[in-house]
Design a binder for these strands. Sequence first.
DNA 1: CCGCAATTGTTGCATCTGCAAGCATCTTGT
DNA 2: ACAAGATGCTTGCAGATGCAACAATTGCGG
Lengths: 166, 166
Amino acid sequence: MKDEHSERSETAWLDAEEMAAWRGLVETFADLTAQLEGELLAAHRITMPEYATMVRLSEAEGRRLRMCDLAMQLHVSASGLTRRVEDLVRRGWVRREPDVADRRVINAVLTDEGFAELERAAPTHVDGVRRHLFDHLSRTQVRQLGSILRTLAAATGSPEAGSSAR
Amino acid sequence: MKDEHSERSETAWLDAEEMAAWRGLVETFADLTAQLEGELLAAHRITMPEYATMVRLSEAEGRRLRMCDLAMQLHVSASGLTRRVEDLVRRGWVRREPDVADRRVINAVLTDEGFAELERAAPTHVDGVRRHLFDHLSRTQVRQLGSILRTLAAATGSPEAGSSAR
DNA sequence: CCGCAATTGTTGCATCTGCAAGCATCTTGT
DNA sequence: ACAAGATGCTTGCAGATGCAACAATTGCGG
């Protein structure tokens, strides 16, 4: 997979700096999430998907969300969420409530026990993010990272901008 | 999950800037990989794990790697790799060769067909990385991102540096 | 008001992955 | 040289997830 900027194809290649950045991003992110997952699991017997689910519910109005909205936020399929919520219900952290206005809808509701559990687990997660990520970065780097991510969010959030290049 | 810097716990919280950066990172990375996976699958019927496996082999000496070394590089378990390679063998892209020096070892070898397939697929992936990531970033931002990732790699790659704080 | 398309959720099935157990082989200490 | 432990790989089993098919409900156009 050598580069040597041979013009054999129509695709612009990545230079060394970009390649290193891309590889580094994949590698670093994988390591980071593995660490966080492991710590959360060891300290509270909670997986990251479970944690993320409870976080979303905790932030929602009335600590409740329609199944489809929750699935959207978590980037999982409807069926995947059905099983995940099933499990959280078994553990007493989430309750399922039919919606009175739309009888197709099931609302997932974070129980008081679930909220309490989340409050116990959150410091572990936050502390992990701090130790593994932000403790190693300068204030300037955090700002730069934030700026980069905002740029990307703005670009990919509305991909309909610009119709020129094919 | 309000902050308000209440001092109820011993864990340093994340400020708004850090929280936004962390959330943005997770979100952006998820979107990015989903895009790349989808494009690769649509254009070449290759999943990201398969692609990553072939890339590693293509870069190795003799386009071959011991199963355990390959598993390490790909961050998968030995059993997971066994099945993944099984599949690549079925598709004719990888060959399994016993090692003459150590008869416990199986070498996974990228076949010529596999290499050819990889050469066809790589532009799709590279183009995706460019379009979804680097096209939106300035040269300066790419350098900053690279710097941040090098910092993190140095910090997490050798966690034995510094024995003071517990 | 009726019927048909769209929306919401669940279930069956297939796939991917990891862990534990098992087997074969290598290495090391004595 | 031999036994014990370490290493490399595979297989059985379980868990998580997506897609397709299905059922129930809602909304809309005529």
